[in-house]
Nucleic acid binder design. Structure first.
Length: 646
RNA sequence: GCCGAUGUAGCUCAGUUGGUCAGAGCAGCUGAUUUGUAAUCUGCAGGUCGGGGGUUCGAAUCCCUUCAUCGGCUCCA
C-alpha cells in the first residue's frame, strides 16, 4: 500500500501501482471526467501513470494550466494522426501545446502543400479519430530504438531531435496507428477531445532558424465541451472588434497610404489629438521629475553611428545612407536618439555634483523593418519614442533605475494598464558575438537591473537573449486584443556607449570619470502605445485623452446660432478640443458608431432649458442636468484632474 | 525576407461553371420631415472590379507579374 497526500493535507492509502485517474475515480466518477493531468511529487505526469511509492498528488482540472497543456498536447498528437492518415508519408517537426491551443509543424513532402481549404478536412478527420477514444500509450525506449523507428519512417526531423536527446530519457506516445516522440504528459485517451477547431496555417522555419527549411504550421484549438469552443470563438470575434486597426479606421485616428509607403503611419486629426494629449501629460510629469527636454534632428552623419556601433550592427539591414552632393558625405535616418543625446552631453563639462543629468525627447526614429513584420501601429517603420537618457555616477545608478521603475508604474497606473509583464532581458550567454562591450560591464549591468527590480519588489521574469546589443534591459510587456505580446516601456543600463562617446564628468577628486547611461522609454513609442490603448479601451478613451470630449446636439434649427455660440466658447476654453458639432445635421438621426465614444452629449434647446444653458448628458452615466457653459467647462476640468490624480 | 490567404464605390459586402455582372446596404449630396443617442421618406451621384501584362470573339471571373493588406515564421536598435 502507498500513502497519497492531497493538496489539502489529507492522506489516504491506496494499492501500489494505482494510477492518478483511478484515484480520481475513487473520489468521484464525476471528478475523473474532469481531470486531465496530475502532479505527483511535484512532477506533472499522465493520469495513466502508475504511482509506485508514497507521494503527494494534485489532480488538475481544466482551470489548471497543466491540464490544458496535456489536453492540447494530446490534441496536437491527434492532429498529427489525422494529418498522417490524410497525407501518407508526411514528416513531423514539433507539435506543442501553446497558450491557447496547439500547433504542429509538418513537412507534407514531395511538392504537396496544405492549403486553407484543407483545414476543414483535417478537422473532420480529427473528430472522427477522437470518437474512437483510443488509449494514449506511453513507452520508454532506448535511443537506438527511437532512431531506428524514425529512420524506418524516413522522418529526418524527429531523427535530428532524438540525436540530441540523452539515452534513457526517451519516450514515445502512441494512439491507434500513430506514434510520436514526446516527453508528455498526455491524456489517458483521445476521447475527452470533443470540440475541435483547426484554425489557421502558417509557415515556420524548422527549429526557428531562417536558414532551415520552412515547414507548414497548422494551428488548432480544442476543448472538452462544444460550448467552450463556441464561447472561445465568440471571444476571438469580440477581440477582433477591439483591434486598433479597425477602431483606428472607424474613428479616423490614423491611416496608411501605399503612396507614402508601407509602415509609415499618417496620424489624422483625432489620432494626433490623442498623441498630443499623451505628450502633454508625460511632459508635465517629466518636468516634475527633473528631466530636461532636448530636440535633435531626424538624420545624423553616418560616422555618428559608426561611433555608437549601430552602423556595424545594423547598417546593412537599415535604410540606406543618404548621400549628399559633397563627396563622401553620408547621413542616415536616425534609428534611435541615443547617439545624438550623447553628443549633447558632451557639449558641456559635467561635475559629479550635476549628475544625474536626465535628458528627454519625443524623438521620431526610422527603422527598416522587414515587410512581413509590419503590423498596424504596433510595428512600423517610423515611430516616435518617448525617449530619455539618464547620465549618472555609478553610485547613483541603482536609485536612478528604481526611480524610473516608479515612473513607469505611475504612468501605467494612470492609464489603467494593470495587465503587464516585467521582463528582465539579458544577454544570450551562448552568443556573445551579438553584443558589444566587455563581459565585466555586462555582468555589472545585468546585476544592477536584477537587484534594482528586486529592491522594488517588482515581479519579473528573466529571459536570456532578449537584451539590446549594448546592454541588458527591463522591459514592460503587454498583450493586445488577441493576445500578441508587445514591448512598451523599457529601461536599459549601458556602460558601453559612454565609453564609445568618451563621456566624462569631473569627480570630487578632480579626475575624469565615466558616467553610466540609462536608456529608458515609458510608452515605448507613441504609435505602439496608442495602439494598445485603443485595444484596452475599445476606443472609449478616458476624458483627458479623448480626442472629442463632447458633441453638441441642437434639437432644432432654431438653436443653431446658439449651438455655434456654445461651440465657439468651448473651443476657446482650451479644454474641449475638436468638439463635434451636429448643427448642420439636424433632422438626421445621429447614428455614427463613433458617437458612442464621445463622452459628453450637450443638448441644446431642450424645452425646460432656460437660455444660456445646455443640457449635459454623459454616455453610460445619464443626465447631468442643465448648466451654464462655464459650469460645464469646470466640470470637465475637474474630471480630467481627477483622472490624472495618482 | 519566407509560408499561406486576401484585394469589387469612403465603409461592409453580393457578383453562380468567363457572356447586359458592374450591384446592395450604410456613409455622401438633393429635397421633404422636426421626432433626444444603432438607423424617417424622396431623388442623385460614387468604381478602368489594387496596378501592369497575357489567354480569349469576350475577363471582376483563368494565367503571369507587381503593389498593398491579413494570419504566422524569422527579425525587432
Amino acid at each position: 500500500m502507498i500513502r497519497i497526500t492531497f493538496p489539502d493535507g489529507s492522506v489516504k492509502t491506496y494499492r501500489n501501482g494505482i494510477t492518478s485517474l483511478e484515484i480520481a475515480e475513487e473520489i468521484s466518477p464525476k471528478l475523473a471526467g474532469e481531470v486531465y493531468a496530475a502532479t505527483v511529487n511535484g512532477v506533472v505526469v499522465d493520469l495513466s501513470r502508475p504511482v509506485t511509492a508514497d507521494a503527494t498528488l494534485k489532480l488538475h482540472k481544466w482551470e489548471d494550466e497543466p491540464a490544458r497543456h496535456a489536453f492540447w498536447h494530446s490534441s496536437a498528437h491527434l492532429m498529427a494522426e489525422a494529418l498522417e492518415s490524410l497525407y501518407p508519408g508526411i514528416k513531423f517537426g514539433i507539435g506543442p501545446a501553446i497558450e491557447n491551443g496547439f500547433y504542429y509543424d509538418v513537412d507534407p513532402g514531395d511538392g504537396r502543400v496544405i492549403v486553407e481549404d484543407d483545414l476543414r478536412k483535417i478537422e473532420d478527420r480529427m473528430k472522427e479519430l477522437a470518437t474512437k477514444n483510443q488509449p494514449i500509450i506511453r513507452k520508454e525506449v532506448s535511443k537506438k530504438e527511437a532512431i531506428e523507428f524514425y529512420k524506418a519512417k524516413g522522418d529526418e526531423y524527429k531523427t535530428e531531435l532524438i540525436n540530441e536527446l540523452e539515452d534513457g530519457t526517451i519516450t514515445l506516445y502512441s494512439q491507434g496507428d500513430f506514434t510520436d516522440l514526446c516527453r508528455g504528459p498526455h491524456l489517458p485517451s483521445t476521447g475527452p477531445i470533443k470540440a475541435i477547431k483547426v484554425l489557421s496555417l502558417a509557415g515556420a522555419y524548422w527549429r526557428g532558424n531562417e536558414k532551415n527549411k520552412m515547414l507548414t504550421r497548422v494551428y488548432g484549438i480544442s476543448f472538452p465541451k462544444k460550448k467552450m469552443l463556441d464561447d472561445y470563438l465568440v471571444l476571438l470575434e469580440e477581440a477582433k472588434k477591439r483591434d486598433h486597426r479597425r477602431i483606428g479606421k472607424e474613428l479616423e485616428l490614423f491611416t496608411f497610404s501605399p503612396k507614402v509607403g508601407m509602415g509609415l503611419p499618417l496620424w489624422q486629426p483625432k489620432g494626433s489629438e490623442i498623441r498630443q494629449n499623451l505628450i502633454n501629460f508625460l511632459t508635465g510629469v517629466l518636468h516634475k521629475k527633473g528631466y530636461k527636454m532636448v530636440t535633435t534632428p531626424h538624420i545624423g552623419n553616418v560616422n555618428l553611428y559608426k561611433t555608437s556601433g549601430h552602423f556595424e550592427k545594423y547598417g546593412q539591414d537599415s535604410f540606406r545612407p543618404i548621400s549628399t552632393p559633397q563627396e563622401g558625405e553620408q547621413f542616415m535616418l536616425k534609428p534611435m536618439n541615443c547617439p545624438h543625446h550623447c553628443e549633447i552631453y558632451n557639449a558641456t563639462p559635467h561635475s559629479y555634483k550635476d549628475l544625474p543629468f536626465r535628458m528627454a525627447e519625443f524623438g521620431t526614429v526610422y527603422r527598416y523593418e522587414q515587410s512581413g513584420e509590419l503590423h498596424g501601429l504596433t510595428r512600423v517603420r517610423s515611430f516616435t519614442q518617448d525617449d530619455a537618457h539618464h547620465f549618472c555616477r555609478p553610485d547613483q545608478l541603482r536609485e536612478e533605475f528604481k526611480s524610473i521603475i516608479d515612473l513607469v508604474l505611475y504612468v501605467f497606473k494612470i492609464l489603467n494598464f494593470n495587465d503587464f509583464t516585467a521582463q528582465i532581458s539579458l544577454r544570450d550567454p551562448d552568443d556573445k558575438e551579438k553584443y558589444i562591450g566587455s563581459d565585466e560591464n555586462w555582468e555589472k549591468a545585468e546585476q544592477d537591473i536584477i537587484v534594482a527590480a528586486r529592491e522594488k519588489n517588482l515581479e519579473t521574469i528573466v529571459v536570456p537573449g532578449e537584451a539590446a546589443f549594448y546592454g541588458p534591459k527591463l522591459d514592460f510587456i503587454v498583450k493586445d486584443a488577441i493576445g500578441r505580446k508587445w514591448q512598451l516601456g523599457t529601461i536599459q543600463v549601458d556602460y558601453n556607449l559612454p565609453e564609445r562617446f568618451d563621456l566624462t564628468y569631473n569627480g570630487s577628486d578632480n579626475q575624469k570619470h565615466r558616467p553610466v547611461m540609462i536608456h529608458r522609454a515609458i510608452f515605448g513609442s507613441l504609435e505602439r502605445f496608442v495602439a494598445v490603448l485603443i485595444e484596452n479601451t475599445a476606443g472609449k478613451f478616458p476624458l483627458w485623452l479623448a480626442p472629442e470630449k463632447a458633441v453638441i446636439l441642437p434639437i432644432s434649427e432654431k438653436f443653431n446660432d446658439y449651438a455655434l455660440n456654445v461651440l465657439e466658447t468651448l473651443n476657446n476654453s482650451d479644454i474641449c478640443t475638436l468638439i463635434d458639432d451636429r448643427s448642420e445635421k439636424i433632422g438626421k438621426k445621429i447614428r455614427d458608431n463613433e458617437l458612442k465614444r464621445i463622452p459628453y452629449l450637450l443638448i441644446i434647446g431642450e424645452k425646460e432649458t432656460a437660455d444660456n444653458t445646455i443640457s449635459v448628458r454623459k454616455q453610460g452615466e445619464g443626465d447631468r442636468g442643465s448648466m451654464k457653459i462655464q459650469e460645464f467647462i469646470d466640470l470637465i476640468r475637474s474630471e480630467i484632474s481627477k483622472e490624472l490624480e495618482y
